[in-house]
């Protein structure tokens, strides 16, 4: 049990750092969904099944959907940012 919690916590912190430091915005949104899914596992370990269900449905599902639609409207829906990072046009 304790090793499961340790591994999940470190995956969650790595994904949280990836949200801040990934240059591509789609990857950052996906990393925030990974944070929500790790949080779901932690809530299930903490004997809070209702919170885990809500976090999986709303935190990981609906929130990622809203952020992805926002990305599309803001013009960040691009997958070719690696070349732009090399050219110095970083988004942040």
């Amino acid at each position: 049990m304790i090793w499961v919690v340790t591994v999940v916590v470190f995956i969650m912190l790595a994904a949280a750092l990836a949200v801040l430091f990934l240059p591509n915005m789609i990857a950052a949104v996906v990393a925030s969904a990974v944070v929500s899914l790790c949080l779901t596992v932690i809530f299930a370990v903490l004997k809070a099944p209702d919170v885990a269900m809500t976090e999986a449905a709303i935190g990981a599902g609906l929130s990622s959907l809203i952020l992805a639609i926002g990305l599309k409207r803001l013009g960040y829906w691009k997958t070719d940012s690696i070349d732009k990072v090399k050219a110095g046009e970083r988004h942040d």
């Binding site: 949280a16 949200v19 801040l20 915005m25 950052a28 949104v29 925030s32 944070v35 929500s36 949080l39 935190g59 929130s63 952020l67 926002g70 990305l71 803001l74 960040y76 942040d92």
Partner: peptide, 12 residues
Amino acid sequence: FRLLLSLVLFEA
């Protein structure tokens, strides 16, 4: 937009 993503992390 990254500010908004940071807000999501803080809430979590």
